[in-house]
């Protein structure tokens, strides 16, 4: 099998496996996996920018939240039906990403990290400031009766699982495809050597801009879907913690690999889920994981597998 065939088989295998799990998993894990697939979609979006383009954002929660609030506010106050609201959320995140890209891409490295962090913090505080509509920290619940697309009740566990599965599958296949065509190659080239890439005649800014916008749009789609599927919109999802999570998932799973975001989200979700049963200080796990990954396994799980056993891994 060629590398391209192997990677196609891997992606379809993962998607097929997750579909089969919909009918096998016990209730508790069934619900967890629905969540994990949405969060993994968020991580896939993050990976486009961090893993492939080499731009480390500390503010992706603003895109996740833009999707979530774009959707949620439209439904809550505009009476917009679920499906158009979902798209409004994605559009909101995309526009925000374009604006942030134009400003933040004037900086590089550490400054880029801090600028994105500050913009996200501005976003978080803005949500708190307009607490009258956003309900601030408390957030608001989307009623079950409005969470319907084409007559399907998204609060039903199986429907919800399959909706999350569709979202994840589309994001996975789309980004895998993107990395297979020339555009993805240029993103990697920018990550590896920006100056050389510019001197080969590529418009580096345009590619980075596109990467931020695509990344933000996917994160926004995940945020909108999360709010819609689980019926809750809250400021927590705009906080620094939700900017750190996708970084953590992608680092753990393997930055710059297509399946890394899913692996990372899966492992970290269960690690935190398990430890939060033992202690309220469950974020300790996240801290320890960040330090250990930085020290010993920068490539993450999929990255190590790729290095040791499967160089074809996309």
């Amino acid at each position: 099998m060629s590398a391209a065939q192997k990677s196609l088989a891997l992606h379809l295998g993962l998607i097929g496996g997750l579909f089969a799990l919909a009918f096998i998993l016990p209730t508790y894990h069934h619900g967890n996996f629905a969540r994990i697939m949405v969060l993994a979609t968020y991580a896939i979006g993050y990976n486009v920018l961090f893993g492939y383009t080499g731009l480390l954002s500390l503010g992706h929660a603003m895109f996740f939240a833009a999707g979530m609030y774009g959707m949620g506010l439209a439904m809550q106050y505009g009476g917009v039906p679920a499906l158009p609201a979902l798209f409004l959320g994605i559009i909101a995140a995309t526009i925000l990403a374009a604006v942030v890209a134009v400003l933040a891409l004037r900086t590089i490295g550490v400054a880029f990290m801090i600028v994105t962090l500050m913009f996200a913090q501005t976003g978080f505080l803005t949500i708190l400031y307009f607490g009258e509509w956003t309900r601030g920290d408390e957030g608001f619940v989307l009623q079950q009766k409005v969470r319907q697309i084409a007559g399907l009740d998204l609060s039903d566990p199986m429907t919800r699982y399959l909706a999350a599965w569709v979202l994840f599958s589309v994001a996975l296949l789309a980004t895998a495809r993107m990395m297979h065509v020339a555009f993805g190659g240029v993103l990697v080239a920018i990550r590896e050597n920006e100056e050389r890439t510019r001197m080969l005649g590529y418009n580096v800014f345009a590619h980075k801009f596109a990467a931020v916008v695509i990344s933000g749009a996917i994160a926004g789609a995940a945020g909108a879907a999360y709010g819609l599927l689980f019926g809750y919109v809250g400021a927590t999802f705009a906080s620094v913690q939700y900017s750190i999570f996708p970084l953590l998932w992608v680092l753990l799973g393997g930055a710059g690999t297509t399946i890394g975001p899913f692996i990372g989200a899966l492992f970290m979700f269960y690690l935190i889920d398990y430890s939060s049963g033992l202690t309220s200080a469950y974020m300790l796990i996240a801290g320890v994981a960040l330090v250990l990954l930085t020290l010993f396994a920068r490539a993450g799980i999929a990255g190590e597998i790729k290095r040791r056993w499967a160089p074809w891994l996309p």
Binding site: L56, Y282, G287, L290, V291, T294, L295
Partner: peptide, 30 residues
């Protein structure tokens, strides 16, 4: 234990100190 071992690489240091942030904060919680 940490910063020296990542050679004070600017980006790695930020990620590592985020980890240290959570470790200290959560240890204080406990």
């Amino acid at each position: 234990l940490v910063l020296k071992r990542v050679n004070y690489d600017p980006e790695a240091t930020i990620v590592a100190t985020i980890g240290i942030l959570y470790i200290i904060q959560q240890a204080a919680l406990m």
